[in-house]
Design a binder for these strands. Structure first.
Length: 585
RNA sequence: GGUCCCGUGGUGAAGUCUGGAGUUCACGCCGGCCUGUCAAGCCGGAGGUCGCGGGUUCAAGUCCCGUCGGGACCGCCA
């Protein structure tokens, strides 16, 4: 497999069993150690590893020269075995060295030391960065993830279908990249934010089980876990319920994890959205650590502390706390003030902190808390002396979100650390919040998501309480993807549109191209999409998806290697009927 | 759109708070010595618009203003 017409082995391949063989290796000069005119050690490197070549002639080879070395595998002399190297027992002697290409010195070392190099420089010379062991590993982890998921989908009877990259602009959702049409100046294609439309129409088309390793594009600001372009394992299946989709995706994701780590994680547990919010304060809970939100509303049922009593009295009010083990001494007044500011910036009216002592609490509000309440707080939070307790009293959602954010800020390990804590978060609300202008509820996922059958009756009467058959896959606090069972009956779709305040005319205008085909017989169907960059990053032990993307963009959307984006050429612009307006300051 | 951090020979850092000659350290690079190294060693050398522009000052890498670039996060990502 690894041999070619130019080489017999890879640089990381040779062992004691090869001693005596004449071999040819190709690769780059990693290190050169010269001992006078007639002895030099050259570490020849390719992605598989390095092999020491002993060169007796006076050959001028330098860092990153590309060589073909032909010689005899021999045992290293006693006392010179390098146990840190898989190939450390052997070396290549009687070397004939062919310089295939000289090289100028690289701007940074092609090894682990480049981890500390400014990322902009690594990206400018990405082709050199990619030569490094870390990048080679990450690219191969990615390939393994793709391969395992593809195999898993094939095995389960899914059919890979490629959907177009030049698509119509869609009215809702993320900002799109526009591509001007040359044939029709003034008209534009959009690059797909996902194959959503096409995959659902594949179901109408009787494909039954579709998947694709799909490129998706969204013109939204970049982050550690977000790029303009990203890859998804996109899938859709017909005549299914939620369990069918979750099982199929679990298979692919667990296979991918096993392919990379060699170990298959346990079956992925499920948690309702409500539990995730209530206990972890976030819809993408990180299950690797505790510090759960503890319910304290009842404890303060008859409290005299006004900040709490008003929350108890309010409809939908909630008081919760988190315990930060052993943190009482770590957090001084200054830091506690910062936490309070943070809580306020997240929408809380305030933050109560209690330092747990043997007697009770050390806190500015300790005097408002009765002995019974103190005992109840300690019992419910399982607090011990030296712990710090943070309490928020507010509307339920605010209480949960604020404490969830603090929990992550204070306790969350780096994303790749520890076990792989997958979790399915199910029963997302159908609607989230209310549009300020229209007063109508806003869709939580997208307007084609099926309402939970038990809640369908409440679409008109209490829309915000309606759950949906929409679900997310979460790993170590990162959202890996989301999906839903789609609405396939027009009556139900009409009710949801009505709740959203979308008129028949508007629905026909905005979504007609999508929904009209359903008239010809849409099967019940549902699907999912898994973010491959994020899954790969976590499996590769990286905290940033740029590390698992061969050619990523910087946070401002530029590519330091190619200098993209570049100004439009006037001739091209003219052909497309485009004119660039001057910048407004 | 916002908040915060960073920018010093090819690379990484110290120096910036408290202004005083481009000073220092490590790696790399070039040359010399060296026959068992593997982060080789020893000796010598070259290499700088302190991101850029403006201001304050007798004097700015250092203080002030602006700007560009990079990063983390918020908004945004139905």
């Amino acid at each position: 497999m690894s041999s070619t017409s130019m080489r017999t082995h890879m640089c990381g391949e040779l062992r004691a069993e090869h001693i005596g063989q004449t071999v040819s290796l190709t690769g780059w000069v990693g290190r050169r150690r010269e001992h006078g005119e007639h002895l030099a050690f050259v570490d020849l490197r390719d992605h598989s590893g390095i092999t020491q070549c002993v060169i007796n002639d006076d050959v001028d080879v330098r860092s990153e020269y590309v060589l073909r070395v032909t010689g005899v595998v021999r045992a290293r002399p006693e006392g010179t075995i390098n146990e840190n190297l898989p190939t450390g027992e052997i070396e290549i002697g009687d070397c004939e060295v062919e310089i295939l290409r000289k090289a100028v010195p690289p701007p940074f070392p092609i090894d682990h030391r480049a981890d500390d190099v400014d990322e902009n420089i690594r990206l400018q010379y990405r082709y050199l960065d990619l030569r490094r062991e870390r990048m080679q590993k990450n690219i191969r982890v990615r390939s393994a993830v793709n391969g395992a998921m593809r195999t898993a989908m094939d095995r389960q009877g899914f059919v890979e279908v490629e959907t177009p990259m030049l698509v119509p602009s869609t009215p809702e959702g993320a900002r799109e990249f526009l591509v001007p049409s040359r044939k029709e100046p003034g008209s534009f294609y959009a690059l797909p934010q996902s194959p959503q439309l096409f995959k659902q129409l594949l179901m109408v088309g009787g494909v039954d089980r579709y998947y694709q390793i799909a490129r998706c594009l969204r013109d939204e600001d970049l982050r550690a876990d977000r790029q303009y372009e990203f890859m998804q394992l996109d899938m859709e299946m017909s005549f299914v319920g939620q369990d069918d989709v979750l099982d199929a995706v679990s298979e692919a994701v667990l296979d991918a994890t096993e392919a990379v780590t060699g170990e298959r994680p346990p079956p992925i547990e499920r948690m309702t959205w409500h539990t995730a919010m209530d206990v972890y304060g976030i819809d993408k809970p990180d299950l690797r650590f505790g510090m759960q939100l503890v319910e304290l509303t009842e404890v303060f049922a008859s409290t005299e502390f006004k900040a709490f009593s008003s929350a108890v009295a309010a409809d939908g009010g909630s008081i919760k706390g988190i315990r930060v083990p052993g943190a009482a001494d770590e957090y001084g007044r200054n830091q506690l003030d910062k936490l309070t500011d943070k809580a306020k910036s997240l929408g809380a009216k305030g933050l109560v902190w209690l330092k747990v002592t043997d007697d009770g609490f050390d806190s500015p509000v300790a005097k408002f808390i009765s002995d019974a309440e103190t005992a109840a707080i300690k019992e419910r939070t399982e607090a011990e002396t030296g712990d710090l307790i943070l309490i928020v009293a507010d509307e339920w959602m605010t209480t949960c979100e604020v404490l969830g954010t603090l929990r992550n800020d204070l306790g969350r390990p780096p994303v790749h650390q520890g076990p792989y804590a997958f979790v399915w978060v199910v029963e997302f609300p159908l609607f989230v919040g209310v549009d300020k202008e229209t007063g109508r509820p806003k869709p939580g996922h997208h307007p084609f998501t099926t309402p939970h059958p038990d809640d369908v009756d409440k679409i008109e009467t209490d829309p915000l309480s309606v759950r949906s058959i929409a679900y997310d896959l979460v790993l170590n606090g990162w959202e890996l993807g989301s999906g839903s069972i789609r609405i396939h009956e027009p009556e139900l779709q009409a009710r949801v549109f009505k709740a959203l305040g979308i008129s028949d005319e508007e629905a026909a205008r905005k979504f007609g191209f999508f929904l009209n085909p359903f008239e010809y017989g849409a099967p019940p169907h549902g699907g999912f999409a898994v973010g491959i960059d994020r899954l790969t990053a976590i499996l590769a032990g990286e905290e940033n998806i740029r590390e698992v993307i061969a050619y990523p963009k910087t946070q401002s959307g530029a590519d330091p290697m190619t200098n993209a984006p570049v100004e439009g050429d006037p001739k091209q612009l003219a052909e497309l009927g485009l004119k660039v307006l001057p910048k407004i300051d």
